[in-house]
Design a protein around this nucleic acid. Structure first.
Lengths: 213, 213, 213, 213
DNA sequence: CATGAATGAGGATTCATTCAT
DNA sequence: CATGAATGAATCCTCATTCAT
């Protein structure tokens, strides 16, 4: 852990340097893992002197923690974007979330890497990601959907959301080995498109005709 | 890559040593990742001289490759165990697979770790896991189930299986961070039991009353 | 081969360190050979941290290559010093070269060691020593001497020079074992003096009364 | 140094094994030097178990000493072959010796390598090569030749012999780098032939018309 | 005689981190 | 703020040598 005073840069130039380090660090950690990441590499790729990293982030762990916390913001960000969903979206909530999460992973290809690192390194104790209760809005939509018969009333929102997250996350993270396992080229966009369509039908396809309506 | 001549032990004693190294290596790699794993650590934990590792596996990479290939056998093993399923199981095929895969991950807590390492280290080129087409038997059951109306005929077996694998894998691998995300203690067996039940209903709950029969 | 980025020191202090490493390395390699040389030893003798060697030279091989290339400069240097010879020196060209080469080996006691290492390690592929044609000046003097009858016209300059180099090199390198072989203490300066005088007479003694002059 | 009792094999099979180790060791030491030679390599190349080496030769040093002493025998051998020279050969003694030594190096391409190793490793203390006074016979021929006017009476036999040995040894050992130095392809047999002819004339060409005086 | 297993002391190389300017 | 030099503690890997059978 960083014991040194980490300096928050005052000048604009310093801010730029710090940002450049950070961006490179995200890539480096996500590609190589914590142990495999190299301070030298980060410094070189950011085209700054190694010492800057220590000035801004304390040590390797400190740098990683910032990178890790960054993923927190991404989740919050996604959660935020879901606020635009309204009652009209309830019937297709599953499909919509599936799409949103799929897009999210495509926009943030490093996300799952950083995220899973934390699970791999089970003994570390990094700050918890969420302070406030997340998914409140979508949760409400789901529960309203349950009452209206769109969703099985015996299936909790947590399970519902878990499935969506699991599938999109797993696709993003394991398409390489799963391509072998399933003998299907999951990296191809059309294959992905098709499979996600099928999965949507499998998961949510049977009931959107719901309620007494 | 291990270019060195690796020695296959001739005597029973050597075989034992090799196995001890291997077992420890699975744990070490799965816990720390490739870069984080330590040969010294493995040697110490296996209570053997470091050099033995190099004699039997060539180098760190060679040891990892063996560990990695070992996961291949696990998958095949599981596939094999699915051969006992018969037509009577078709209606509940989804639920059954969900259980089997869940059990599999519980019996092999290191599996997902090794498996995902390969996806994290995208630039490496390890031998493909599967030679022959796997899941042939279950695939046939599924397709028969489709004809009988148990499963959506527009959902391919690959998508069906993908969902099962994704969910069980993701639960096994990310319960820690997902517990935060969902504000639910996924490590608790009862929570898991409940959630898996719900997920089963969500995925396969609507149709097992199927067919014209 | 050193594929690593080797850093060329920018500051004077770095330059000094690099030079100190180099000097020690010449000694270490020349005394122990490539395989016998120890990086630790070099670092200790140069009173620097081992890591500096890797920073400046990449790896052991890179360090050796620099040492090896250094011998190239020495040869060029000697060649350069021969430029002061003029037509007046032609009659005694053999004797003069013998002396110059003898002195050269005495001033550079490590030279033959490094030089022969390359011949011992026949499978390595180090940069060739000479870019331009060497010994042009002395060669011309010799050929002029041939025309004037000082040297046998059927003996090429290459053979002439080879003999000079061979004898001085061999004396410098093998006096130890040759002392046993010849039962003569070749390490003693007076013995060397005497023998070199005799060899000079043997090689070039018969004809300096040459030409029509 | 070998502290262990080295076993002299009694059986024929043991003798064969020992010989095979030895032959391989000569090659290995001569190619890689003492430090670079590998016991494992020798064992593998000799297709025997490493332990045999220790049984027969004590340790690496002991093995090398035997190899080194073997060169002694080679020198004696050559000396022995020179006993067939007689008074008729005196006029061409230089040329003859040059040829004999050249042939010797061609028949024993490892000789110079082992030989020079001893000079490179100056701090070691291996047994002296020669017990008895060598070259007695040739020495007498030379001195008789001096009296008959074939050789310069002021040039000692030692110097005479030194030149012959130096040139042939140097050619055998440094043709690779000397090819660069002289910009001549010394590895080609025809080049060697020509150059040795020229060197013979340079060294001994002027006086073999002697005697009768 | 012969072999495979095992070991401890290196030996090259790397890496996070600090120092000095 | 910024940089190049420097360091000590690993970390992977090798090698001569011994043990046990």
């Amino acid at each position: 852990m960083a014991k040194l005073k980490t300096v928050d840069p005052d000048t604009k130039k310093g801010e730029e340097t710090r940002q450049r380090i950070f961006d490179v660090a995200v890539r480096e950690f996500s590609r190589k893992g914590y142990a495999g990441a190299r301070i030298d590499q980060i410094a070189a790729a950011a085209k700054i002197n190694k010492q800057r990293i220590y000035a801004y982030f304390g040590d390797k762990e400190g740098l990683f923690v910032e990178v890790w916390q960054h993923t927190s913001d991404l989740i919050d960000e996604l959660d935020h974007e879901l606020l635009d969903l309204c009652d009209d979206d309830i019937p297709n909530l599953g499909q919509i979330l599936l799409e949103r999460y799929t897009d999210f992973h495509e926009s943030h290809p490093d996300f799952w890497r950083i995220f899973i690192l934390e699970n791999l390194m089970g003994d570390r104790h990094h700050p918890r990601l969420h302070k406030s209760r997340p998914f409140a809005h979508v949760g409400e939509l789901y529960e309203r959907g349950q009452k209206r018969g769109h969703f099985d009333p015996t299936v909790s929102f947590e399970s519902f959301l878990f499935v969506v997250i699991a599938i999109t996350f797993f696709y993003a993270s394991n398409w390489r080995t799963m391509s072998d396992t399933l003998a299907t080229e999951l990296s191809r966009p059309d294959v992905k498109q098709k499979m996600m369509g099928e999965i949507g039908r499998l998961l949510f396809g049977s009931r959107p005709d719901a309620q007494g309506e």
